[in-house]
Structures are given as structure tokens and as C-alpha cells.
Amino acid sequence: MTGTEPAPPTTYREALREAMREALAADDRVFLMGEDVGRYGGAFGVSLGLLDEFGSARVRDTPLSESAFVGAGIGAAIAGLRPIVEVMTVNFSLLALDQILNNAATLLHMSGGQVGVPLVIRMTTGAGRQLAAQHSHSLEGWYAHIPGIRVLAPATIEDARYMLAPALADPDPVVIFEHGSLYNASGTMPAGSGPVDLDSAAVRRPGTDVTLITYGGSLGKALDAAEQLAADGIAAEVVDLRTLRPLDDTTVLGSVQQTHRAVVVDEGWRTGGLSAEVAARVTEQGFYDLDAPVQRVCAAEVPVPYARQLEEAALPQVADIVAAARRAVG
């Protein structure tokens, strides 16, 4: 391929796989472990082929015990390795919450800085795929509540490809949420792509009239809403949080200072959720920049339904985002 030819299209899934392949090849301390990550290639096909390439010592299938293999990952990280632990879906991570909250997130503090846990935990999140109430959670806000860990939500192919390397270099535990609806998303990697600044949100679309703040699987809906609003003469700026802990207040507030209106889109539940935290920060730090109350578009306060039409009704949709933006603009 010459320098003038466009890059071939890739998928979100393939970008994640290539990031892990690069990490495994570059550092012998890195290994992948989790349920079905080896012979099966991962529940969502992300690690397909890595077992053949790197062997069973580097790509390890584990028993069905999240507490056990997340705990093993914590121990390996303490011992100097750089584990990537895959938890099949976010609801299964609750079985390892004791390990994540009471061990991984606290050991550096409780040891007076002597014991670090440079661990990366990947997991699938989100609804919209008819997997019913037990497999459709969006619990990113729960994890963003925990001091001592970094929480990432790659929403683009570029972030899926280039967030892993800085995550592995982070001395603290990092949790990466991959929205299940994104695995098949395809596109072309932007020219000059490289490691992502994990401390910064990204402005995905500039605008002057209202700021749409979101992350992960809701980014595409926010961008579609911005297109519809543009047809009505409303210029919406779209901010992708990318990192949910620590939040990038500077980018969010900088956008609100320009647009004077904010809509927070979060697939999680409204009560006590991440949208509440973002709205509170905008209000606390940017109250006098606001020309309207902060709007929130969240999932309905119900277990996510299985029936497709009910699931769609329970989740934030483009029309809901457009309506909230119009309320804000007034």
C-alpha cells in the first residue's frame, strides 16, 4: 500500500484485538486471562487467534469464577506482571466486586504506597441487544464512584485501538468498558492515530448552541441527534467523556461556557447515576454560564426489558436527545 492510499476499514472488535496483539508482542509481562478468551476466541470474538499466536501461557482460559481470576490478576500485577483480565459482561463483574473495590482499588493506599496493582480489566457493557435484564446493565457509574481506579469507555475505533497501551502503563488499576453494540462498528482509522491521553475528553463535533455530553455506546446517538438539530439551525457540540474517572471537567465546562446549555446522555439509570455527577459538576462550577437547566437523558428506571420494542422504549434514543436539546435551547 502506498502512502496515498486510504487505510483499509476495520471494526471496533478488530481494533481491540490489534491493541492486545501489540501489547502481548511488545512486553513479555503482559498476558490475557478470562473465560473463553483462548480456544473460543472470547465471548465476543475479540481475542480470536491470539492463543495460536502467543500460546496458552500468555492467553489463559479460566474457570467460571470471576472472583478467582480477577483475584489472580491482582496477584499477578502485584508480582510485577501486566495482566489484562476479561470479564465477559459487566453483570458478571459484580461477582468480583469485592476483589476490585476492596483489593485492587485500595492496596496502594493501605500499604502506604508500597503495593501497586497495575491491572487492566476489560468488560462488555450496555443494552440494546435483547439480552434481557440480567445481561444489559450499564454500571459504569458504579465503578466511576470508586477512588483508586481509572475508568475508561472507548466509543470510537481509534480509542478502542489506542487506549490499551496507556492503560497498561498506568500504575493503578484500569477498568475498560466496551459497549456491546460497538463490536461490529466499522470505519477507517484516522491518519496519525496513536496513544490516547487518558485524562482528556474529546469534542467529537463542534457547536455553539448546546452541549451534548455522553460516552461509550451513546456517542453515535448523540452525533445523530446533532445532525437532526443542525437541520433546524441548532448547532450542538458533542463531548465524548472517554474517561469516566477522573472526569475531565475542563473540557466539559469549556464547552458549556461556549454554548450555555448542557444535555447529559447516559444509558445508565438516572437515580444516583453518572449523569447526576456530570450535571452536578456543571451546575457547581458553571452555574453562571448556564442559560437553562441541565437536561438529562437516561434509561428508564426499570430492569431492561427483553422485548425489542420495550427495550428501545427504556433506553435513550436519538429522538429523546433531540427533544432534550430543544428544551434546553427553548
Rank of each mutant, 00 (worst) to 15 (best):
T4K: 12
P6Y: 04
A7W: 01
Y12Q: 10
R17E: 10
A23W: 01
A23G: 04
A25G: 15
A25R: 13
D28V: 05
R29P: 01
G34R: 00
E35C: 05
E35P: 06
E35Q: 09
E35A: 00
D36H: 02
Y40L: 11
G42C: 00
A43H: 03
L48A: 15
L48G: 08
G49K: 04
G49T: 04
L50W: 09
L51Y: 00
E53Y: 02
E53V: 11
F54L: 10
R58M: 08
V59Y: 07
D61E: 07
E66G: 08
S67R: 12
V70D: 12
A77E: 06
A77R: 15
I78Y: 01
R82H: 10
I84T: 06
I84M: 12
V87L: 10
V87R: 04
T89R: 15
N91K: 11
N91S: 15
S93Y: 15
S93F: 14
N103W: 12
A105M: 09
A105Q: 13
L107V: 13
S111A: 02
G112W: 02
V120D: 06
G126C: 03
G128T: 05
R129S: 11
L131T: 12
L131P: 11
A133V: 10
H137C: 14
S138H: 08
W142H: 14
W142T: 13
A144S: 05
A144I: 02
I146N: 12
R150Q: 07
V151C: 06
A153Q: 03
A153N: 11
A155N: 00
T156K: 03
R161S: 01
M163N: 12
L164Q: 06
P166Y: 00
D170Y: 07
E178S: 06
G180H: 05
S181F: 04
M189N: 09
V203G: 01
V203M: 08
P206S: 11
P206W: 01
Y215M: 01
L219V: 05
D224F: 06
A226V: 00
E227N: 12
V238H: 08
V238F: 00
D240A: 02
D240F: 07
T243S: 11
R245W: 06
L247R: 02
T251D: 08
V252P: 03
V252R: 01
Q258S: 13
H260N: 14
A262H: 07
V265S: 03
E267Y: 10
R270S: 13
T271C: 13
G272F: 06
G273K: 09
E277G: 10
A279R: 00
A279K: 04
A280D: 07
R281Q: 11
Q285W: 13
Q285R: 14
G286P: 08
Y288T: 13
D289P: 08
D289N: 14
L290H: 03
L290Q: 02
V297K: 06
C298Y: 09
E301S: 13
V304I: 15
Y306H: 14
Q309G: 07
E311D: 03
E312K: 15
Q317C: 10
D320C: 14
A324F: 07
R327H: 13
A328M: 05
V329G: 05
G330Q: 14
